[in-house]
């Protein structure tokens, strides 16, 4: 595979690492939020709903700036995480992952929430009368019936996080080997005369990644026996 330079391989691997970590960390959070929004009724729910959706409607640059305010070295939250968990975000790949996670969150919550709301709760009560407790009912009825939404959330989240640009460059900057993911590298290459071919290669890579994620999800959906025919 010599159609990519070692530098470009590095960019690809960094992109996959950043997005992979972002999605894996976000999935349980997104599921919990989707569950709360789909099943609970409490005062202030509208506020939680709006807050979750904020990254979807704000300009990404603003989201990046808000992340700077929250997780910067002098921000209380950022200092706390640095002191107690040794987690720093600025100019690090973890910062790129955090930005990607925050941008992917609303899409993932939406997909999971829709599928949870579509689960027929009468089936859950039927499982209870057959002797299944809450946890078993969740694991054997609710979760399988919502699985298409969870798969959709993974695909949407992955696509969104691989394409993340504005919040990342604002919050984590454009550091080669740390935060220079595919979109940032393409943007960088566009600034340099004579690197048009690199732009083409990186753009083709982006297209392959996105189409690959879609094909993978369709394949998974088919493999499940037709019950998840359409993911998106």
């Amino acid at each position: 595979m010599d159609w990519l330079t070692p530098e470009e391989w590095g960019i690809l691997l960094l992109s996959l690492k950043v997005s992979g970590v972002a999605i894996v960390v976000t999935l349980p959070v997104a599921f919990a939020l989707a569950w709360v929004l789909a099943r609970w009724r409490f005062p202030g729910k509208v506020l939680v709903d709006a807050l979750v959706h904020l990254p979807l409607v704000l300009p990404p640059v603003v989201t990046g700036w808000l992340l700077l305010l929250a997780f910067g070295t002098n921000a209380p939250l950022g200092r706390f995480l640095d002191d107690y968990l040794g987690l720093t975000f600025l100019f690090r790949w973890t910062g790129a992952a955090l930005a990607a996670a925050v941008m992917a969150l609303p899409l993932m919550v939406r997909a999971i929430r829709l599928s949870l709301e579509a689960v027929d709760r009468r089936l859950e009560s039927a499982a209870r009368t057959l002797g299944a407790g809450r946890i078993r009912t969740f694991a054997s009825i609710t979760l399988p019936l919502a699985s298409s939404g969870i798969l959709a959330a993974l695909v949407l989240g992955l696509a969104r996080s691989i394409g993340e640009f504005g919040a990342t460059i604002t919050f984590a900057s454009n550091i080669p080997g740390e935060t220079r993911t595919l979109p940032l590298a393409i943007y960088g290459a566009l600034q340099i005369p004579g690197s048009e071919l690199q732009v083409v290669r990186l753009a083709v890579l982006s297209v392959l990644l996105s189409v690959g994620a879609l094909v993978l999800s369709e394949w998974l959906a088919r493999r499940s026996g037709g019950r998840l025919r359409h993911v998106l």
Binding site: D120, R122, L123, S125, A126, A127, R128, T129, L130, G131, A132, G133, I141, P144, L145, R227
Partner: peptide
């Protein structure tokens, strides 16, 4: 419900579709 051990045949059946 799971402690009552009833056999409930629902009007809408509620067979698990998956």
């Amino acid at each position: 419900p799971e402690q009552r051990r009833c056999g409930y045949v629902f009007q809408d059946l509620r067979l698990f579709p998956h």
